[in-house]
Design a protein around this nucleic acid. Sequence first.
DNA 1: GAATTATAATTGACTACTCAAGCATTAGTC
DNA 2: GACTAATGCTTGAGTAGTCAATTATAATTC
Lengths: 137, 137
Amino acid sequence: MTNATDFILLNTLLNTKLQKGVEGQLSLHGISFTEFMIMHQLMQAPNHTLRRIELADQISITASGVTRVLAPMEKIKLVEKQANPRDARVSLVKLTEAGERIYTEALVSFEHSAESLMSNVSAGQLDEMLKLSGKLL
Amino acid sequence: MTNATDFILLNTLLNTKLQKGVEGQLSLHGISFTEFMIMHQLMQAPNHTLRRIELADQISITASGVTRVLAPMEKIKLVEKQANPRDARVSLVKLTEAGERIYTEALVSFEHSAESLMSNVSAGQLDEMLKLSGKLL
DNA sequence: GAATTATAATTGACTACTCAAGCATTAGTC
DNA sequence: GACTAATGCTTGAGTAGTCAATTATAATTC
């Protein structure tokens, strides 16, 4: 049993724990973890707008996954579809004002639970993990 | 944006990458990541046997998830069901000889891909990640 | 500039789970 | 030792995705 193997198995369990912990808080805002990740990416994009494929790449799901996650978000107007005048194939996704508000509120809850879930490591150790995870990505 | 939040989001992407990387190799042996985790736990258990609930806890899925994953594994005889004479409610799961063989073969592939996926960090850094992940679990 | 190839997005069919309800069986209580 | 509560497991219904095929548009090549 190598350490690399051990790490992958351990990290799988850790990831499940972290995700469940955060999801509990996000559900109070009516959004899922995946929806939060989508809004998080849109929030950082210029004009709060991205192509569906870029979104897919950034959160590591398929294009069809993006279509399926966005459908209900459009219905409740968290995001809106926009055409790209230069290329009729692409449909741009934009975070609405309402979406921006919900995201900002949800982010507070996310950060609180994140801090609490990570409270067993020091600030320095957290920096180290961030750095090393970045190298692996 | 706190580092704790950043870490959780980053780790989610990392986990997806690691899991997909390993799954590609495991599929050559005809097993999924979850099936591998189950066999891995059984392999380490006394007499290669565990209760379904213990299995569920150890790999962080629900009891019903365990039932659903094990069904096809029983059909192809990777594991077998055993009654517990002391308590008729529990049904024990045991790794068969065939299961043991498949696991051992699959483990080699798992370790190779794990090493390769983790090759961007040093042995010391890997130890550090293992230690810190352990603290968070 | 017509024909071929590539890209963006969606859809139908499937998979791998979860959750809530149910059925046995065992444990705890009086 | 009968009654209630708790535990172990399974099942039906639902959810969040994947993959392969399809449609529409754009880019490339000849």
